[in-house]
Amino acid sequence: MQLKYKFILPLALLLSAVMLYPLAFSGWLAFHEYRLTRLDDVHFVGFENFVLIATDPSFLNAMGNTLIFVLGAVSLELVIGLSLALLLQKLNILRNFSRSILLAPMFVTPIAVGLMFRFLLNAELGVIPHYLSKIGITVDWFGPDLALFSLILIDVWQWTPFMLLMFLAGLEALPKTPYEAARVDGAGPWLTFSRITLPMLRSVIVVALIIRALDAFKVFEYVFAITRGGPGNSTETIMYYIYQTGFRFFRMGEAAAAAIMLITVILVLVVLLVKFSQAEEARK
């Protein structure tokens, strides 16, 4: 065997065992009736699971919730992350100090973040509603209207630091001369930002967006820690839906079909995003 294949052999073997095999198994599951409660009656059902899932209102609801969550969280994280990165870069005081603090949330155990905010935002026990009500604002953070939005905010708290990290590095690597030229040309801050900084950062932004969006699709911990999908099913995300289908109702086949549909949606979105950003690139 060629040497280069020897170097990747351990990885290839291990990944086949823990990923390829399970993936194939999942593919198989999706076409079978497979209930943990009825293991003696496993049989091939064709596309029935997919049909069941695709016509299940809760699945569509979960998919919708997830898309709203991903879109809301990622766009907020992008805007806040970019603003903070610019601020941090321009304020030379406190830079290192605030930098390491601002990056911290992305490492915190997500379930701990979920519980922390569940507690902080709790209508009776929470310190935030308590002080908000002092200034006349009473909101039920985990009520039917706001619960999904609150989950988005929690995700923003935890993951804006990731955007910040990417953008800080991106900004640091930017060449200085265009800025000097812009200053000589008398361009104002907004013009400088929109015509110089943003275009130069675009590849970093695209990568950060893709990584974050793919990650946000996996949201589970906050839902599990706080709302368990409720009130009603207003915060049921796709991961939570699959978890329920597979491990509370033990309908493995349907859960697998749902997971495959999730991957399909993600793939389509990634391809669209990449195509779109390449088209943008070509247009320039």
Partner: peptide, 12 residues
């Protein structure tokens, strides 16, 4: 980037 949802069922 693989969502854990699709791997957990076979694992389990």
């Amino acid at each position: 980037m693989m969502p854990p949802a699709i791997l957990i069922l076979p694992f389990f």
